[in-house]
């Protein structure tokens, strides 16, 4: 599903976020990317989602080198990913329901079926009762769960999350981790960058240190 082949990412002016990183994950895997702050975890997630392009090496997602993807093909890669970014990128001028609806509007999903899916996704993360609320009225944990609901509503085969449990208390973090476990059990490939590696004790871990993989 994902393969990194000697991937390096250098930000100007010469800061190496990742250097010669190689790893592979197969469909249905759950992989935790851990490491200190600045180890390159976020960069790794952004490379998979083609938000950043590698300086050298190849990032293959579903057999496709996403670093060389054309601008017009990019949206169709993103549609197959569920993306939970560190800053959740929620839209604060629309309701919880409309936030989760957005990915389905983008793919031109029939409205009726889309509404059922949005409700199912909200139900899965425990926000079914809050669909009319504005994101600003949600707690930190609820906002995170909203971001997850939006990421999974189009039922992607691959779920990416960048620090999904940051700024959450232990109980809420465990709750969010449980949701990711559930998706993994349902067959979704899950890639999570986190420093809370202990929340996912059963998952395979890729430990990064200054942009390099360490055993």
């Amino acid at each position: 599903m994902i393969r990194f082949d000697r991937v390096a990412k250098r930000y100007p002016p010469g800061i190496d976020a990742l250097s010669a990183l190689s790893f592979e994950m197969t469909a249905g895997d759950m992989l935790i990317v851990s490491g200190h702050s600045g180890a390159g975890k976020s960069t790794l997630i952004k490379l998979v989602a083609a938000i950043e392009k590698p300086t050298s090496g190849a990032v293959l997602v579903g057999g496709q080198n996403v670093g060389t993807l054309s601008r017009s093909a990019l949206p169709f890669l993103r549609r197959r990913l569920g993306l939970v970014l560190q800053d959740q990128k929620l839209l604060f001028d629309r309701s919880v329901f409309e936030n989760v609806m957005l990915p389905l509007s983008i793919t031109g999903f029939p409205p009726k079926e889309a509404m059922q899916r949005v409700r199912a996704a909200l139900d899965k993360v425990g926000l079914a009762m809050r669909e009319k609320a504005l994101p600003i009225a949600l707690s930190g944990g609820e906002q995170q769960r909203l971001a997850i609901a939006r990421a999974v509503v189009s039922r992607p085969a691959l779920l990416l999350a960048d620090e999904p449990t940051a700024h959450l208390d232990a109980e809420t973090a465990a709750d969010v981790a449980r949701i990711f476990h559930e998706f993994h059990r349902a067959g979704v490939t899950v890639l999570i960058a986190t420093y809370d590696g202990h929340l996912f004790p059963d998952a395979r871990t890729l430990r990064l240190d200054h942009g390099c993989s360490v055993a």
Partner: peptide, 28 residues
């Protein structure tokens, strides 16, 4: 031009919506 992988082109016919391209067009 490089061919898109099946995995990505598949997204373009997401969830069978392509059966009604006119509908998507109208909805959009």
């Amino acid at each position: 031009m490089r061919e898109r992988s099946a995995w990505i082109t598949d997204a373009q016919s997401h969830d069978g919506c392509l059966e009604f391209p006119m509908n998507i067009w109208l909805v959009n």
